[in-house]
Design a protein around this nucleic acid. Sequence first.
DNA 1: TCGCATATGTTATACTGTAACGCAACCGTT
DNA 2: AACGGTTGCGTTACAGTATAACATATGCGA
Lengths: 143, 143
Amino acid sequence: MAKAEMGHDHAHSYEAPTKLTRNQSMVFSALREQEKPLTAYAILDRLRGDGLRAPLQIYRALDKLMEKGLVHRLESLNAFVACQHEACSGHSTVAFAICENCGLVDEIEDEAVNREIERVSRERGFLPTRATVELKGLCAECR
Amino acid sequence: MAKAEMGHDHAHSYEAPTKLTRNQSMVFSALREQEKPLTAYAILDRLRGDGLRAPLQIYRALDKLMEKGLVHRLESLNAFVACQHEACSGHSTVAFAICENCGLVDEIEDEAVNREIERVSRERGFLPTRATVELKGLCAECR
DNA sequence: TCGCATATGTTATACTGTAACGCAACCGTT
DNA sequence: AACGGTTGCGTTACAGTATAACATATGCGA
Ligand SMILES: [Zn+2]
Ligand SMILES: [Zn+2]
Ligand SMILES: [Zn+2]
Ligand SMILES: [Zn+2]
């Protein structure tokens, strides 16, 4: 039962982040119901009952959701999480604190971290387009 | 050949970076001959002529080399690079600036970046054990 | 020497991600 | 309504990354 916005036919105010397609909604819902990250195949397993059968259906939905800033990929886990902000299309960079005990992920946007990354890049003549910052350790609950 | 080095220190001085085994030496050499990162399978291809046949031989060597701080894994590329410092067993955290045009990787140790990562973790009650920081963009040559 | 830990070699398999194809739904134009 | 472009969908097959399990070998210390 995909819960993500069923109806909504009528024209809306702004650039309503373009409605999600059926597959995209299902994948997004699967990720939001879970606070922990899921691999593409884990998502697939949860959605087999809803008609999704092939990995590509998941990966295509994830690609679009990432474009829209609704989902992030955790490179160090080969997994995906729903964005914890409103939707980070804009965000310069976010960091993820990943608990190795309980799997909880905290999405962090921090100005000073981003500033230092910019500075160190500039000092080396490097022109960054995106950054991956992932911290492993113990969350406040588990430490 | 490839006996890796000789030398028996009767007196266990410190933990002299423990000699590399034959496979570890070959994998490490393959990585050092290349300034760009290599995937495990790319390393394997280069070492087939030297008797290595199976992925596991590569992965096992890489695991040990990473333990010793001689090699780093780039999570965002599923690839590996030789450490550009003396050997970062100790390093708190290093960042990698990865050129998307030429593939060059610059290994960066920066005190301020590390300090801000520590701070933001502390502020959230997160106890970090290791960090992955990978920047994608254009190197000084390619920009 | 025995015994243990570590390293190796090999096969098979699991996990992660794409290429390529054809069809369907959508949308703005005519 | 018919056209034509774009995007999404479904499927098969495959490529790329990583590990499990098991057997053998090798080094080193008690
Ligand atoms: Zn976000
Ligand atoms: Zn936790
Ligand atoms: Zn290093
Ligand atoms: Zn470059």
